[in-house]
Nucleic acid binder design. Structure first.
Lengths: 224, 224
DNA sequence: CCAGATTGTCACAGCTTTGTTACGGGATTT
DNA sequence: AAATCCCGTAACAAAGCTGTGACAATCTGG
């Protein structure tokens, strides 16, 4: 995944730095604007993945900026405001803000929200069309890779489905055996290896989707 | 789950009792300190799960205590302050405080925040992040340094996870051997050194995160 | 500043883990 | 019933990991 770019618009330099420091620590790229005007300019000029807007700002205020951005883009927006400005809050949601954080806030909370927001967007995307080119229809037990159907044996299908269901997680051989085979299956752990091998060969160029975790088991990659 | 221990540091006896009563009602174990000095002493002596610090305190003030604790530990910290000391607030977050509550506050609000804080930590348990740019996702067994994944052998992963879990603590070679290797492992203590060496080289510029404690063992630094 | 102790570094051989392939028995399909 | 497919096991090859020992570098106390 590319590093995401976040635009922070707030007139207080300290607040910007505070947020910026925390987000950079999480490997986000951060751009800063100290008023609505330059925020809009930056947004037009750069590829922005998330906007954090202070409601109270000189020139065009945060709500106006939010409205302007929404005219052109559906980029996620987080609004910041002083506590208790309830009116603003409702207004912001109507304008299409995605999150709403009241000052004073802890930067940890904010970064957590940012992360959660991106995770949410990411998972919505994978549901639409599994981002790694793989789609599994559990009803028809049909598997397609880059729009081409691939033929799998029953065990291969179950194994792939289980891996896919838990993609991103490290799975031990024992876990896999317990879930994909009978729970009380009494056999060789290496059986898993063999089936992984068969799966990989059927995945062709995408064999690397199934990663080996030495000394532990396997993991299905979330992205290609 | 064990009962959590909370350390309250405030010079006003009245405030301490107020918070203490409410927290005890929620089955927390509460320790009290009426100045920064004894707060630090208590923190060093006891296993503390949360610290509540008044900014205005005699001897070392709350901010100083916060900084001191952060040098050694990533324990959650809640700061208390009189309303309107915005400067302190930003300062506190930069120092690594997790929450910020302004006086006067209702004890209900505070206990609610305490509960929420623990819940949040509980849910984020699998993804351990530290302020030094390292993240260990125990679910995927993926380790990232400054957002770049790094490849570790099984032993290296286990070792790093153990060090990280106990970051800030000095760990003897024997302790490390007992925990990371089989408990009854019967081998050379120097084996630890070799693996530390390998870890360090994979940490690249961040090798200094693993500090040598001469005549004893190693310690994983809390901050970079 | 020296001697001894402690730690860093490195290479290597043995070992463990994993990839790969083949095969035979059993199940399923035709 | 024959043919085909699927599955688990075993055997071998390849890759990667690990512990050890030797030597260098560093630290510490005298």
């Amino acid at each position: 995944m590319q590093n995401k770019t976040v635009l922070i618009a707030d007139d207080e330099q300290r607040i910007r730095k505070l947020i910026s420091d925390f987000l950079q620590r999480e490997a986000y790229i951060v751009l800063e604007a100290d008023n609505g005007q330059s925020a809009l300019a930056l947004f037009a000029a750069e590829k922005i993945d998330l906007v954090i807007l202070d409601v109270m700002m000189p020139e065009p205020d945060g709500l106006t900026v939010c409205r302007e951005i929404r005219k052109k883009s559906s980029v996620p927006i987080i609004m910041l405001t002083a506590r208790g400005e309830e009116l603003d809050q409702l207004f912001a949601f109507e304008l299409g803000a995605d999150e709403y954080v009241t000052k004073p806030f802890s930067p940890k909370v904010l970064t957590a929200r940012v992360n959660a927001l991106f995770r949410r967007l990411e998972s919505e995307k994978t549901l639409e069309r599994s981002s790694n080119g793989l789609s599994i229809d559990t009803e028809s037990r049909l598997v397609c890779l880059d729009a081409h159907p691939i033929e799998l044996s029953p065990k291969e299908y179950d194994l792939l489905a289980f891996l896919f269901e838990n993609r991103g997680k490290a799975l031990s051989r024992q876990q896999i055996l317990n879930q994909v085979w009978n729970f009380d299956y009494y056999g060789d752990l290496r059986t898993v290896d063999t089936h992984i091998n068969r799966l990989r060969s059927k995945l062709g160029d995408n064999a690397s989707l199934v990663q080996t975790i030495r000394g532990y088991g396997y993991r299905f990659e979330v992205e290609k």
